[in-house]
Design a protein around this nucleic acid. Structure first.
Lengths: 252, 252
DNA sequence: GAGTGGTCTAGACCACTCC
DNA sequence: GAGTGGTCTAGACCACTCC
């Protein structure tokens, strides 16, 4: 736990990174106390206000919480960054030894056509990869997901193991593609023949239909992911405190 | 725009309220500049760090944003605080002169029974009000909402105009009931006979089924609201930047 | 009474924007 | 060069918790 005075990075920022790292490796566990402002200041040779700034940031990010007179603690609740990570599965499907699996149905290169661009609601695009996968929980299908990814970002994408749980993580880790923001759209539809067969539900069953679009800082699209999830096996759960809220743009 | 030095409220908190009020009344509009830290300090006779604290809070709440060297501005994007406010309606339903309306189907006092408590997934409860309402957009039903509210908080609730757009606002404004957090659960179901008739959809059509539970600081339940929304008329839209995220507890 | 976080001050120097 | 926000310091006094 050391601060680099020669670094261009602000002191409070370095402290934030240190604390996050130590929480990640388990040095401070959820509910546990982290050092006080005074302790941190003394340990690192910085002003109390600087350690306070680092802690205030982590509090507003939901990593820590504070109790006056008692101390600063690691927050219990985890953060997630999207609807598609907020689902949970029905009781009957969940067991202590639940097994997730991903099956790749196809992974191919496609060329832009009017139909595809319209389908994706994109104005322009380059060559695309199209990857369709089924997510299984205890061998029962819980999601049918089709991803569209511009070839530009990752020409050799199809050489990877695409049954990894998150394409998103793959793009991030292997191709170092960071995202700036993403949008998600939740709709509710009837299963058609294709979907019902792959998801093993009756034709006409209610399905969640989720479209996620991910963008870089320059508003380039990284991924369009369209998922169908059976209404009888999945639901979405949110908890909002007065402080936390998410951004919303109404559809035009 | 004045600060009360005798108030028990912190100076930075008073400044936050002043700025929020002035944004609300339109003195500062989205995209417009608010006074700089130095200007605020001079105007109110407070330290620059104190005005900075007020602004930093409003930035982390998404009310303002800052650009180094330029100034502090009112954020364009509005915040919302729950899934139930994140829906939008299909194109065909929306017009420039769209009219929202709320029709009260019934409002009654009910007594706790095992069935109701189980239905609400509540452990204990008091006497309850049950209010069922239909939300209409251009005379077409877009939501069938049933609210359960403990009588304890608002004994004369049924004397109010319950066709106001938000029961929630009514509780807040008239009975001064503040909430601490709420949970929301999104499911996807088939319309049964009752729902299909009231929502004017075919039996078996896909519906969103949303359960919102609102709690006080003491974990007392204020309201349970259960809504059905037709999948062909509504969808939910979210935008997440890397910084914003919402809290999540997986269902157990 | 000692330790904690909460609020507030009055300074300092910096990078950035705009002119 | 003037104005802006970004970072940092070294103090002060307070309310709250725990003993």
């Amino acid at each position: 736990m050391e601060i680099d005075r020669k670094s261009k990075l602000p002191l409070y920022y370095q402290l934030k990174e240190i604390l996050k790292e130590e929480i990640d490796v388990g040095k401070y566990k959820p509910g546990q106390k982290v050092p006080s402002e005074n302790e941190l200041s003394a340990m690192l040779g910085i002003s109390r206000n600087t350690s306070k700034q680092a802690i205030a940031d982590l509090v507003s990010e939901g990593v820590l919480y504070r109790v006056q007179g008692k101390g600063t603690f690691v927050a219990e609740r985890k953060k997630f960054t999207g609807v598609m990570e907020a689902f949970s599965f029905s009781e009957e499907l969940k067991k202590d030894d639940s097994i997730f699996a991903t099956k790749v149905l196809f992974a191919e290169e496609i060329f832009e056509t009017k139909e595809i661009l319209e389908y994706l609601k994109l104005k322009e695009s380059a060559e695309l990869f199209r990857i369709q996968r089924i997510r299984l929980l205890n061998e029962r299908p819980v999601a049918l997901q089709t991803s569209y990814i511009p070839k530009f970002f990752c020409p050799d994408l199809l050489d990877n193991d695409l049954s990894a749980n998150s394409l998103f993580d793959l793009l991030k880790e292997k191709y170092n593609i960071g995202f700036s923001y993403f949008t998600e759209n939740l709709a509710c539809v009837k299963a058609d023949k294709y979907e019902s067969e792959l998801l093993q539900v009756k034709k006409g069953s209610p399905l969640f239909f989720i479209t996620r679009k991910t963008f870089t800082k320059n508003d380039e699209i990284i991924e369009v992911a369209r998922s169908f999830m059976p209404g009888d096996r999945c639901e979405f759960y949110f908890k909002h405190s007065q402080k936390t809220s998410i951004e919303l743009n109404h559809i035009k």
